[in-house]
Design a protein around this nucleic acid. Sequence first.
DNA 1: ACATACATACCAAACGGTCTGTATCGGGGA
DNA 2: TCCCCGATACAGACCGTTTGGTATGTATGT
Lengths: 211, 211
Amino acid sequence: MPRPTKQAPDSGDARTRLLLAATDLIRSKGFAATSVDGLCQRAEVTKGAFFHHFASKEALGVAVAENWRDTTGAFFASAPYHAPEDPLQRILAYIAFRKAIISEDLPACTCLAGTLVQETYATSDAIRRACAEAMFGHTATLEDDFAQAIAAHGTIGITAQSLAQYTQTVLQGAFVMAKAAQDPDPAHAALDHLYCYIRLLFSQSKGVNAP
Amino acid sequence: MPRPTKQAPDSGDARTRLLLAATDLIRSKGFAATSVDGLCQRAEVTKGAFFHHFASKEALGVAVAENWRDTTGAFFASAPYHAPEDPLQRILAYIAFRKAIISEDLPACTCLAGTLVQETYATSDAIRRACAEAMFGHTATLEDDFAQAIAAHGTIGITAQSLAQYTQTVLQGAFVMAKAAQDPDPAHAALDHLYCYIRLLFSQSKGVNAP
DNA sequence: ACATACATACCAAACGGTCTGTATCGGGGA
DNA sequence: TCCCCGATACAGACCGTTTGGTATGTATGT
């Protein structure tokens, strides 16, 4: 039973506020540069509250990744791109949707899991796994649409899983490039190329595209 | 004039060893988690030497990114993929080459600039710029080949710069996915898709692929 | 002799984490 | 309905270590 705190009663309980603040801070500064003290300050929570809810900073990292998987899962599940009846159109609508939500505010629109995993893949297996679950879990939701598109079109020599993962790959790369350029343009351009690739793939004759 | 240290006289001067050690550590643990002390220990150098060569940790970050640009620049300049006479074949050879050098040893084969920029894009403009220079500088070397391929083939409705940057985007995304999966397979698969995309693009008729 | 290239000791601040205390809850017995 | 109970949810002071950075000293090549 969450209980609102005296300090900031409006914005949920301490755990929720910590998760939210951590998501923000990690996406802009990274995990290591996000201190527990700074986190508590941002969340308007004391250190006692932090270590009551999370056994360690690493445990917070895991929880943030899990929370990211849950919230983004719900977000994309209720997104409008599922509307088209044609599975290929759903995929193209997905790509267009992903492109549309990439703005200048990169800390707010980039992927927490991708950022977090780059820092921790070699030092914390627990965090790495939680990030991987978020990322590959999301690609799994695309897999169905790709499978249906392949079934409708006839085989194109590439698996649905591979295409779904490639989509995620382009997105992750797009975020890195946008951060480097301090500009969403390279990300938008990348999604245009992905869009173009998918269209090209599914307008080809059978079985000639095996890599 | 570099002078070998008493402590480790075989492996170059202190600055070089620090740059090398920093590249290693940042690629596996990230920038923030790489402490100056740990760095000096790894490089077999004292702290005095560190702050003699670098004004601050941030200055080291910039120097590492610049060094990365220089060393990878030389590495790719002398790589075998430039051999084919056909520019399109050079590009495909480049992609195959990039695929070939991605192994299980992810800290050793992933991109320093991509890792570093994700952590620092919002906190250090100097480091971000140095990383961007390394990344976009490398894409610029691909641009020529793409431009020639487009010229040879006739316009395909996409600029050489956009294609070169997309190539880099896929690579960066491939590294993130490989780290999350703790496995180079997703990266290899991504480069197969990129290879496939380029082939598809340049086997189309004129001007129909504009995204 | 002078600048460069280190070495070593040291520092205040920040770090992750612990400890103890208190307020608030739902639930159970009288 | 009342009070009491243990459990949960914090609050806040405290601790040892590590952090980036500095100050000062020394060796070495030119």
